[in-house]
């Protein structure tokens, strides 16, 4: 294993294309050597840079652990993967795509619920009425727990959902959801409505640097050199590592 830096790029779909486009526009052309099935890539004129293709959720976790140095992923995933994300990673640049909101959405027919305070009342009464906790389906376990704690709501359960979360209320596996949405059309199609104060996080794809890795002076210099190629050097970034 070389001593160089590792950059993680989302391995699939629009996120992969847009990430590579953003780097190419900035002057760093990334090739996926073995085609779409390969997990490794190369960057032009950067022999010491290891490029890895990984699922976006994994990139967030690996940045926090420090097993990759740089990575493109959604800020929603980073925020959810760490209790204090600012201690674990730094944002180098917002890349201007993948914009979406993590929101609290309830069944639209709940005409009495428009804000988080209404949800707090519903949660406080729910167990007495139904003999179980109010349930929220989400893949954002930590973001949800933190948001509800901030609003003083503890009378609920999280049901972990990794796909088609918006269908959980109609399927009866949860009462409402916390999910990511860009246009809101999927929510509307499933009879759901975002609370007036229900935006937990505004997310977008960004380039992050891990603070958990081994940032020797040598590696800091490599980071600064790489960032000057793409001209994305936030002043003093290496002093914060």
């Amino acid at each position: 294993m070389s001593n160089g830096l590792t950059l993680a790029i989302p391995s699939k779909g629009r996120l992969e294309e847009q990430s590579r486009e953003a780097f190419a526009r900035a002057g760093l052309v990334i090739e996926r050597s073995g085609g779409a099935r390969s997990y490794f890539g190369t960057a032009a004129r950067q022999p010491d840079l290891t490029v890895r293709f990984m699922p976006a959720g994994e990139i967030a976790r690996e940045l926090i652990r420090g097993t990759v140095d740089l990575g493109v992923t959604g800020s929603d995933l980073v925020e959810d993967a760490a209790e204090h994300s600012e201690d674990a990673v730094l944002t180098i640049k917002s890349l201007g795509f993948g914009e979406a909101d993590v929101v609290v959405a309830i069944p639209d027919p709940w005409i009495d619920v428009t804000q988080m305070v209404d949800l707090a009342d519903v949660a406080a009464d729910f167990r007495t009425r139904h003999g179980r906790w109010l349930r929220v389906a989400t893949k954002y376990m930590n973001l949800t727990r933190r948001h509800f704690a901030r609003h003083g709501i503890i009378e609920y359960r999280v049901v972990e959902s990794t796909g088609a979360t918006e269908a959980a209320p109609a399927a009866g596996t949860a009462d409402f959801i916390v999910d990511i949405t860009s246009s809101g059309s999927t929510l509307t199609a499933n009879g759901l409505r975002v609370l007036e104060d229900g935006i937990i996080l505004k997310s977008e794809a960004s380039l992050f640097v891990s603070r958990s890795g081994d940032w020797s002076p040598m590696r800091k210099a490599q980071l600064e050199a790489l960032m000057s190629v793409v001209n994305w050097v936030p002043p003093g970034i290496t002093t914060k590592l």
Binding site: P107, V122, H130, P169, A170, D175
Partner: peptide
């Protein structure tokens, strides 16, 4: 509730 596909007998 029925129009949006929710079961009125389940949950709230």
């Amino acid at each position: 509730m029925l129009a949006a596909g929710f079961n009125p007998a389940d949950g709230r």
